[in-house]
Each structure stands twice: as C-alpha cells, then as structure tokens.
C-alpha cells in the first residue's frame, strides 16, 4: 500500500501540475477575451522540447536541473494529499521547509554555470524575493506549529479535521490572511513574476535552457505550483479526508490566484520587498502574538 502511494503521489502531482499550467493559460486567455490554447498545450510543449536538441554548459548545468526536479518530486512525498502521505513520519514541517528550498537552489546552481548575466540577475532576484516572502512565511508557519504544538504536518491536518479550518479559527485567522497575501510570491506568479521577467532579463535563470532542460524546468514549475498551493490547503484549509476534495480545494485556490495574476502588472523587486516586509509581515507578527497570548 505504501509503495503504491509512493508511486502514485508524484504521478498525480505531475498530472495536476501540468493541468494547472494548461488551465492557467486557458483562463488567462479568457480573461483577455481570447480563445486561448488547448488545455493540453503545456504537454505538447513538453513533448516538443524533449524531442529538441539542447546545449549544455557543463556538468553542474545539467545536474542542477535534474536535482531541482528530483527534489520537487521528493517534496510531494512529504505533503499529505487527502489521506495519501507516504513519508509523513520523516521530520515534519522543518524538512518540508528545507526541501522546498532545494528546488530553486538547484536551478540557481545550474543557471549560474550558464555564464549569462541574465541568469545571474534572475537568480539574484529569486533569492532576494525568497528572503522577502520567507520572513512572513516563517512567522506564519511558526504560529501554526506553536498553536498546534506539533511539527508534523499530518497532525496539523488531522487536528483541523477534528475541529475547524485554521483559516476560520480565531487564533490563526490573521496568519491565514498573511499567507494569502504572500501566496502569489511563493508561486512566482504576477505581480511577483520578477524572477523570469521575459521582457527584461530574457526569462532569467532559464535563459540558456533549451530542449530537455526546459522541459524538465517546465515540469518543475508545474510541481512548484502544486506544492505551494497544497501547503496552503493543508495548513489553513484543513487538508481533506480524501484526494478528490483536496484537489478541488486546490483548484479553487489556484483559480483565485489566477485572477490576481491576470489583473496585476509586474512589480519591481524593491517594490515587492517593500510590500512583503510591510503588510504581510506585520499581520503575521500580530497573528503570532495572538497565538502566544491564547496559548498562555
């Protein structure tokens, strides 16, 4: 049973991630009053990219991409999706937090070896942005962990199943709001699409990726969307008892995120930092203090 879960979970995540990418393009097109591509377009792109010749700038260039995708796949195993959670007892939230950082780190190492300043600028922006959203995110996660007195995400989900969603409970309400405010930055969608800004820095770290490298990076992007939303659903929307409901919740969150994505222009990096370190951080800190007061 465990082995089936281990195999099933990444495949499901892969399918849903690709579906999200396709859905994003379709919904964006409809918001722009366009017809839009077929919903399978990202899959077609990936097939095309896999069949193309690619260039490599060195071993780290190759290994970085592979490592990044592998770590995203591993991360799926730590996240409970409904009842599916193959590696629930291997370190809890802290491991998830750390493994989450491996995927961008792999891309950063790989992009760095491309010897292209566009890639370096993109990575510098990505890491700066990560520091920007990690400040409120860490406060939020610590508030959740302190409130439920556990490090295990499975326990957090089951406690919410027994009582109410964290987003609707009094102590964690503000934390949830802060998480929603930084969710676009975690997912890397507009207005925080600073890393890949195609028009300024030629898609940033991906500037030298072609062929199968870009295919893997696209898949990784899909998984990244999946992970960001799944974490939110698990922490604040009470997870779910079974996978379909879990995916439904994810879909709702994602579509809401898309509306923001379609409506807002891209921020500059210092505007993004100023925003992230002001309102979400303030709200998250107030949330944390409330949690501490209630705990006492």
């Amino acid at each position: 049973m465990r082995i089936v879960e281990v195999i099933l979970a990444p495949i499901l995540a892969l399918l849903i991630g690709m579906f999200f990418l396709g859905l994003a393009r379709k919904i964006m097109a409809r918001i722009h009053w366009r017809y839009g591509p077929p919903i399978t377009q990202p899959v077609i792109d990936v097939i095309r990219l896999f069949s193309q010749k690619s260039v490599s700038h060195g071993n780290m260039f190759t290994l970085g991409v592979l490592f990044s995708l592998a770590c995203s796949l591993v991360l799926i195993l730590f996240l409970p999706m409904g009842k599916i959670c193959p590696l629930s007892s291997s370190g809890g939230m802290l491991v998830i937090l750390y493994v989450m950082l491996l995927a961008p780190f792999g891309i950063a190492l790989s992009g760095g070896e491309a010897a292209n300043p566009n890639a370096s600028i993109g990575i510098s922006r990505k890491l700066t942005l990560a520091l920007g959203y990690e400040v409120p995110l860490l406060v939020i996660l610590l508030a959740v962990m302190t409130h439920y007195k556990t490090l295990s995400i499975v326990n957090i989900v089951s406690m919410q199943q027994n009582t109410s969603w964290a987003l609707t409970s009094l102590p964690l309400f503000l934390s949830g709001i802060a998480y929603i405010l930084i969710l676009p930055a975690i997912l890397g969608i507009r207005p925080f699409e600073i890393t890949q800004a195609a028009q300024e820095i030629s898609s940033g770290p991906m500037v030298e990726y072609g062929g199968s490298f870009l295919a893997l990076a696209t898949i990784q992007h899909g998984l990244n969307l999946f992970i960001g939303i799944a974490l939110f659903v698990n922490l604040f929307l009470g997870g779910a008892g079974n996978p379909p409901i879990f995916f439904l919740k994810m879909l709702v969150v994602f579509v809401l995120g898309l509306f923001i994505n379609a409506a807002l222009p891209r921020l500059r990096i210092e505007q993004a930092m100023r925003y992230l370190w002001r309102w979400p951080t303030l709200i998250a800190f107030i949330g944390m203090i409330i949690v501490l007061i209630i705990r006492r």
């Binding site: 896999f50 193309q52 690619s54 260039v55 490599s56 060195g58 592979l66 199968s212 893997l216």
Partner: peptide, 10 residues
Amino acid sequence: FKAGPKAVPV
C-alpha cells in the same frame, strides 16, 4: 533525461 536527445556541450 537520458531518454531525450543528448545535450551538446558548448
């Protein structure tokens, strides 16, 4: 990755 075409070092 290996199943795809081989990357050319540049």
